[in-house]
């Protein structure tokens, strides 16, 4: 056998199941539940009551970067599903995953885009002002064809419908385990729903239904949507990188003014000023705004780096989310 060392597990705990969820539900979540003991699982609880420790997520690769730091190499990436972007990383202490992710990075850097499915463990980052940013640490991942991805979309649509159904049942019920189960909430969603309902304010569940409908309609053949850009109305106010990628790869912005009216730095600063609601504005949004204002994609990327690293006018408190430097 190979030289895999056998890792002695201190105490075997039952494994956490992989929650199927779309990016929007996970990105909206800001309720972590930290296990109290050393080996206790931690969870991110979504508005629909999913208790996410491990998840099976998918999407088209959107960003992928290698980072070198004192503790070694790590990788950070984005995958985009019909509802938004999942962030993931491969840590320096996961050398067994490095060859595979290097290979993907190579493909990505050559301009290749591909669908991925990824099993990851929930992580989160809390800002000083209480914002919570969710992401995954990759455990297993692979590049998949559209057929396998579409199966995932359907599976995730079904899981989301199940949570929507349970969430609606919980609206009519007392928030006790017995009452929730009596009103038809599946056992695995009871804990999460109680926590979610106690933490999150009112919200419109329709947002989550849109992703479901997208996934299902893609499976039924309107397949052009998947590998190009998701329909804009579905992704809300977040323009997608896929759009800008397509445009940039086509050699620029033929349909747009070739002579930008505004300085690229101004566009970036204004966009942040307008759109930052406390958690920063994501990289793709900034690039997209610049492209829409007639700048080249590369110009936009360079400008963002310059504003952050040289001017110090903007900060990146979390990977890929930008804020103005506080006064």
């Amino acid at each position: 056998m190979g030289g895999d060392s056998v890792i002695q597990q201190p105490i075997r705990r039952s494994r956490q199941s992989a929650i199927r969820l779309f990016a929007q539900e996970y990105a909206d979540a800001d309720l972590p539940e930290e296990g109290s003991g050393e080996y206790d699982p931690s969870f991110v609880i979504t508005k629909l009551g999913a208790k996410v420790n491990r998840a099976l997520v998918g999407g088209v690769i959107d960003r992928l970067e290698r980072r070198e730091h004192e503790s070694g190499l790590s990788f950070t990436g984005h995958i985009r599903d019909p509802t938004g972007v999942h962030l993931f990383n491969v840590a320096s202490f996961q050398p067994e995953l490095h060859p595979d992710i290097e290979e993907l990075l190579h493909r990505f850097e050559k301009g290749d885009r591909f669908l991925m499915l990824l099993v990851g463990r929930a992580r989160w980052f809390e800002t000083d002002d209480g914002g919570v940013f969710t992401s995954f640490r990759a455990e297993e991942f692979t590049v998949v064809d559209k057929d396998r991805y579409t199966h995932w979309l359907v599976d995730t649509a079904a899981a989301t419908l199940r949570r929507l159904d349970a969430f609606e049942a919980s609206m009519e019920s007392d928030l006790t385990p017995a009452a929730l189960e009596a009103s038809g909430v599946p056992r695995d969603l009871v804990d999460g729903l109680i926590l979610a309902r106690g933490h999150y304010g009112e919200f419109d569940t329709e947002n989550y239904r849109v992703g479901v409908l997208q996934g299902l309609s893609m499976a039924l053949g309107s397949n052009a949507v998947i590998e190009s850009a998701p329909a804009p109305e579905a992704s809300g106010d977040q323009p997608t990188l896929a759009e800008s990628v397509t445009e940039a790869d086509d050699g620029g912005v033929a349909s747009l003014e070739s002579d930008p009216e505004k300085d690229v730095n101004e566009v970036i600063l204004e966009t942040i000023l307008q759109r930052d609601e406390g958690s920063g504005v994501d990289y793709d949004t900034l690039v997209h705004a610049c492209v829409m204002a007639g700048h080249q994609r590369e110009t936009a990327e360079d400008a963002i780096d310059h504003l952050r690293d040289v001017d110090g006018a903007i900060i990146e408190p979390r990977f890929s989310f930008f804020q103005l430097l506080p006064e």
Partner: peptide, 12 residues
Amino acid sequence: PEDAANEVIAKW
């Protein structure tokens, strides 16, 4: 995927 999607649509 079509079969699976139709099952989900029927179920929910």
